[in-house]
């Protein structure tokens, strides 16, 4: 049986079955143009812990029909896919702290695993959902570069967004 190897940024190597590896669009596209049984992908920005998590996700989803059929969608489709619903298995699987989620997000983005990427996005949003700007700042450790006047001006300008049922 053919196997694909991933080498992580911290020097570990993980061997993965071909059908799992091709969940990553990067691997899939590469193998389509360079058919081979054995090859190693160097993942410069993915560490061992993150890769293990990502591979676990890939194994679980390797037979999913939507993984097969997903393609580069048009703008129209993208604007329609806004629901924050996700597969309950994924929701549970991604119950991690924010920084690990960011690692997974970056890995999914790098390896082109769209569903995992989107679900990380949703999960990260859910952490800040319903929070005030001060709370979000604390969560993201983001530096505030607004003066009080700026804040008041922006608040007035975007006040319509805050009005929901």
């Amino acid at each position: 049986m053919s196997a694909i190897k991933f080498e992580t940024s911290d020097g570990f190597t993980i061997q993965v079955e071909r059908e799992t590896a091709v969940v990553s669009k990067v691997v899939k596209n590469f193998l389509e143009y360079h058919p081979t049984d054995k090859c190693t992908f160097h993942l410069n920005c993915v560490d061992n812990a993150t890769l293990r998590k990502v591979v676990e996700w890939m194994r679980h989803h390797k037979d999913d029909a939507y993984i097969e059929t997903e393609s580069d969608e048009s703008d129209e489709e993208r604007s329609q896919d806004v629901s924050i619903e996700m597969d309950p298995w994924d929701a549970n699987f991604l119950n991690e702290d924010l920084f690990f989620l960011l690692d997974i997000l970056n890995a999914a983005n790098f390896m082109k695993i769209k569903v995992l990427f989107k679900n990380c996005c949703k999960k990260i949003y859910l952490m800040s959902k319903g929070k005030s700007s001060v709370e979000i700042k604390r969560l993201l450790k983001e530096r505030c570069d607004f003066t009080d006047e700026d804040l008041q001006r922006i608040a007035n300008k975007y006040e319509w967004m805050a009005r929901v049922n």
Partner: peptide, 10 residues
């Protein structure tokens, strides 16, 4: 609603 808060972050 959350975009509103996010806009005020930075």
């Amino acid at each position: 609603k959350d975009i509103y808060s996010l806009s005020l972050v930075s």
